[in-house]
Nucleic acid binder design. Structure first.
Lengths: 113, 113
DNA sequence: TCGAAGTGCAACCCTTGGTTGCACATCAAG
DNA sequence: CTTGATGTGCAACCAAGGGTTGCACTTCGA
């Protein structure tokens, strides 16, 4: 069954800007499109689009108050995404180790010939 | 200091088709654009483009023999990519744990009031 | 030699990250 | 209450990238 990954979560986290946004939201404990765009090299509208994507996949959650629209990270969902990341990493890691082990075996056989 | 990630590697590994290609190349021990496209829901040309991307970032390496062009995974580079993946995961994980701990502390304080 | 198999190149869609521009809501003074 | 400043949302537009089809070019095998 190969990797069996939720591609939506991956592509959400795969974008560099969205990763930086998640970083900022985590360290600042939430923020709005405007406050985020102040600390990013993109416009507020670009940030708003990304927030929409992150909201749709459930990685962030918005609460409107007055004219502001504050976003916060959904820890549970982000934890899920992190788990999937490390799962793929673990899969590849295991295969690479197997390859390395086979290479070492061949090396040993060559040396004892 | 944030994530400090090589975005090229990320975006190379972020694409679902490229991830499946890496999976196939690892389990089959290499392959050509044609053999890969046989086992993927995309055309040979699409696979060829992806192989070009993976080659440019150094995740795979091509060797021409006759009319075939065989690709194999560069284990060292893939290991580097995996390390970067797990690094980001670890960062977020640590922050989430900190958040969780703070939440628990607040909960305790509320109970003892 | 001639067809089949493998590749590369080019043109073309569609999605998406990014931009600018504008209209609308809300807050805070005056 | 009016008015300017701030925060949002929506729409049009551009560029890059994943995907497709079509075609020309090599190479292998009968």
């Amino acid at each position: 069954m190969s990797t069996a990954i939720d591609d939506e979560l991956w592509s959400a986290v795969g974008d560099p800007t969205r990763r930086r946004m998640l970083d900022l939201l985590l360290s600042d404990g939430g923020g709005t499109a405007t406050t985020l765009s102040d600390r990013l090299p993109v416009t507020r509208q670009a940030v708003a689009k990304h927030l929409g994507v992150l909201d749709r996949v459930g990685l962030v959650h918005a609460t409107a108050s007055g004219r502001e629209r504050r976003y916060e990270v959904d820890e549970v969902q982000l934890a899920r995404a992190v788990a999937q990341l490390s799962a793929v990493g673990a899969t590849w890691d295991a295969r690479l180790q197997r390859i390395k082990r086979i290479a070492e075996r061949i090396q040993r056989e060559k040396e004892s010939s």
